[in-house]
Design a protein around this nucleic acid. Structure first.
Length: 423
RNA sequence: GGAGGGAUGGCCGAGCGGUUUAAGGCGGCGGUCUUGAAAACCGUUGAGCGCUUGCGUUCCGCAGGUUCGAAUCCUGCUCCCUCCGCCA
């Protein structure tokens, strides 16, 4: 959520920067409602002052036994006016709130301009793209011929976009989760958290998934619970409503959770395999920082996520998303894309974003710089560290041998009981 | 699922229709004292919003209601705790 005061006082600047996302977002309507709201506040507060004075007066008269019928009648009359004004004030406030919730974050100045993913800017490439002396198979072919991935039976028990991992594949998923968490917690200083996999509407609204993106989510019937699409949702909301000290920051959390996505509107995309599933595992990194530290911490998260791919020796590149491709709540985002041999291209495996104070304002998470200063909003950030399903795709395909077996990356072997290959 | 208890400022906790401007304590900050510190003592210390920056207004879990006036009374809801039942 953007600050209404910022919009009020810098309308032209906000309009210009939001236009880079390709939208107008109804700023004019918002500003006129805001002006109306300010007028209502002034009127109602003036009336409340009169009523408070009258009430104090009545109190004194009652105490001394005087008659206060005139004051009471006057106060009753004012009360009626206040009630009417408060009602329209509340209505106006709710309209403003819902308009604000539908306006995305302002792109950071270092976010490149552009309409869509074609304008994303490559930042770096790492690793050697493997040269196979044979036609590399997809992870689906490899997994099915090795008998370790079973999409047919997954469809039988759940449906399309689900998978069933068996034996070494199931073990590899568990190993990757542990491998990632170990590095992020033991080496990069994140505190591991194990949050709920379902959250309420308020938490979904706080991190920005609701109200606009309900179609992407799974809702539990007859309850206020939603399945989380990413650990970002429960973890970002851990500190909602709290007032921190500067010395508490930065706070870094790492969490493994399954993620559930409806994938509405992606029919026909990545219909087979592990790339796009209704349920997948992910290790997520979340940081809370002071504003001046936000940009630096985004670079940290990116490096922390990249480190997993480096240890696994998987080729990847990093791109900065352009304004038109940026997520709703983000001001700046780096995507990490891993090499997928069967598709002969890089595919997203991590997304690292800086939300400035946009999420913090929604969840009302503030900090106090020192004893004398007023509370201000923290900055929130997060990044995948990494998406486990897609990491499995990358490992299986990049480490395949001509006979259809898969070598286990050296760094992962200790997490798989020393296993060096799946044959 | 049944019965009971509770939710008040950074934290603990009193208040149950009108000097609540929310007592008191802890913690924080400033000062006295001290070579310095501690202790002691004194003072001070919530958030949001509006505008004529000093005033006003709102906020005691959330939402309604009663009243001239609500932290306080009434209704509904949410969450937490205790006991019973069920249960991994």
């Amino acid at each position: 959520m953007l600050d209404i005061k910022l919009i009020r006082e810098n309308a032209a600047m906000i309009r210009a920067r939001l236009s880079k996302r390709g939208g107008d977002y109804g700023l004019d309507a918002l500003l006129s409602l805001d002006a109306q709201r300010l007028r209502l506040i002034q009127k109602t507060e003036q009336l409340k002052q009169s009523r408070n004075e009258l009430s104090a007066n009545i109190g004194e008269k009652k105490k001394s036994g005087e008659n206060s019928d005139i004051e009471q009648a006057k106060s009753r009359e004012i009360g009626g006016e206040i009630k009417a004004l408060d009602e329209s004030l509340k209505k106006t406030g709710e309209e403003i709130e819902s308009m604000l919730l539908s306006i995305p974050n302002i792109p950071h100045e270092s976010t490149p301009d552009g309409e869509d993913e074609a304008a994303n800017r490559e930042v770096l490439k790492w690793g050697e793209i493997p040269k196979f002396s044979f036609a590399p198979k997809s992870h689906v072919e490899l997994g099915e011929s090795l008998g370790i991935l079973d999409f047919g039976r997954a469809a039988k028990i759940a449906g399309a976009r689900f998978s069933l991992a068996k034996g070494p594949a199931a073990e590899m998923e568990r190993a990757l989760i542990n491998f990632m968490l170990e590095i992020q917690t033991k080496e990069h200083g994140y505190t591991e958290v194990a949050p709920p996999f379902m959250v309420n509407t308020s938490a979904m609204t706080g991190s920005g998934q609701l109200p606009k993106f309900a179609d992407d989510l799974f809702k539990i019937e007859n309850s206020d619970y939603w399945l989380i699409p990413t650990a970002e949702v429960p973890v970002t909301n851990i500190l909602s409503g709290e007032l921190l000290d500067l010395s508490d920051l930065p706070i870094s959390y790492a969490a493994y959770t399954p993620c559930f996505r409806a994938e509405a509107g992606s029919y026909g995309k990545d219909t087979i395999g592990l790339i796009r599933q209704h349920q997948f595992s992910k290790v997520e990194l979340v940081k809370f920082t002071a504003p001046e530290d936000g940009e630096r911490q985004l670079e940290r998260i990116l490096k922390d996520a990249e480190e997993i791919l480096r240890r696994l020796n998987l080729p990847y590149r990093v791109v900065t998303l352009c304004s038109g491709d940026l997520g709703f709540s983000a001001a700046k985002t780096y995507d990490i894309e891993v090499w997928v041999p069967s598709q002969n291209k890089y595919r997203e495996i991590s997304s690292c974003s800086w939300f400035t104070d946009y999420q913090a304002r929604r969840i009302n998470l503030r900090f106090r710089r020192d004893k004398k200063s007023r509370p201000q909003f923290v900055h929130t950030l997060n990044g995948s560290g990494l998406a486990v399903g897609r990491t499995m795709v990358a490992v299986m395909e990049n480490y395949q041998l001509e006979n259809g077996s898969i070598e286990i990356p050296k760094a992962l072997r200790p997490y798989m009981g020393g296993l060096d290959a799946i044959v």
